[in-house]
Amino acid sequence: MTGIPPEHAILLAAILFLLGLTGVLVRRNVIFILMSIEVMINAAGLAFIVAGAAWGQPDGQVMFIFILSMAAAEVSVGLALVLRMYHCFKTLDADAASKMRG
């Protein structure tokens, strides 16, 4: 395989990351916000893979594995929190939890 220019791959990672960021900023449903966060995490992982491929070392994939496990822990806790929030507010509107009091 001839080398894929790393700039392109990094650019792909940046594009995906920013798409995820846009999703976080636009959507009000917390499930969608979590989804967008996953997209962002995935893009960050892609960046590591690109770096690993550029060096020709497995360190990139190792890093990716750690990121993956972190994403897994994060999504499970996050979804539990979503369930709690739903119990509390009876809605999935992220703006409902904005009282900042108590």
Partner: peptide, 26 residues
Amino acid sequence: VFFTLGAPFAAALEVVIYAGAIVVLL
């Protein structure tokens, strides 16, 4: 994409864990 970048293990993990567990969780 991971596969083309020479990271087959990461590609497999991506499918198994990310698409197969996390998204299913969602």
